[in-house]
Simulated assay, not measured.
Amino acid sequence: MYVCSCFGITEQQVRDHAESGACTPRQIASACKAGTDCGGCVRRIQALLGRGACPRRELIDQGAPEPLGAEVPELPAAGARGTYGTTPGAVPDTTPGALPEAA
């Protein structure tokens, strides 16, 4: 049965990608584009992923390290200077000719 009619992706293809380590809808999308066009299949993909065991998730639960490239970038600490040298939530100066503050 088709899960993603935009790209012709079947339930079996989603399961195959999940067995290869794609454990989230975003990872499935990276593997085969399913869910990246109209988005109508994302909930179906979530349901399929929720039913089976994810080999990578099982390894993580057992304490195995994530594969290279899977690291999540560290977020700035609270109160750290954000975009354009402003504090998070502050409105940057949009006056014509205004330059962002130096960090």
Rank of each mutant, 00 (worst) to 15 (best):
E71C: 01
A22R: 03
D16G: 04
T10F: 07
A77P: 08
A78G: 08
E71V: 01
R26G: 11
V42T: 15
D37P: 01
C32I: 12
Q62A: 15
G52H: 08
A31H: 06
E11C: 03
A78R: 12
G50Y: 11
G35P: 00
G39Q: 06
C41L: 07
R15Y: 13
P65S: 09
E66F: 00
A31S: 15
L49S: 04
H17Q: 15
V14Y: 12
L68F: 06
C23T: 08
R51A: 09
I45L: 08
G79T: 11
E11D: 10
R15I: 14
A64C: 04
I45W: 08
R44L: 01
E71R: 10
G79L: 04
R26D: 09
T36Q: 14
A70I: 01
D61V: 00
I28M: 04
A31L: 03
C41Y: 02
A34Q: 10
G79Q: 09
D16F: 07
E19Y: 05
I28Q: 03
A34N: 09
S30C: 01
A47C: 04
A70L: 05
A64P: 01
A22D: 04
R57E: 12
A77C: 09
Q62T: 03
G50L: 07
A53R: 15
E66V: 12
Q13D: 14
A78E: 15
P67E: 09
D61F: 01
R15D: 14
I9H: 04
A78S: 12
R43N: 13
G35H: 10
H17I: 00
R44V: 05
G50N: 11
T10E: 07
P25F: 14
D61N: 11
Q46S: 13
T10S: 15
G35V: 01
A78H: 08
D16C: 02
A80S: 15
Q27D: 14
E66M: 12
V42P: 00
G69Y: 03
D16N: 13
L68W: 06
A53W: 00
E74S: 08
C54K: 00
A80T: 12
C41E: 10
P73Q: 02
E74Q: 11
C54H: 06
A70F: 13
A70Q: 06
H17D: 14
A78N: 05
L75M: 12
T36F: 01
Q27S: 13
P67L: 06
C38M: 12
R43C: 03
R57T: 02
L75F: 05
H17V: 00
V72M: 13
G21V: 00
A22K: 02
G21C: 02
D61L: 11
P25W: 13
I45V: 14
R44A: 10
H17Y: 10
A18D: 04
G50F: 08
A31M: 06
Q13A: 14
P67Y: 07
T10N: 09
P76T: 04
C23S: 15
G69P: 11
A78C: 03
G21Q: 06
L59D: 13
A53P: 03
L68G: 05
E58M: 13
Q12M: 07
E58K: 09
P65I: 02
R56N: 00
G79Y: 13
Q12E: 11
Q62K: 09
H17E: 13
D61W: 05
A53F: 01
G63M: 05
A34Y: 11
V72P: 02
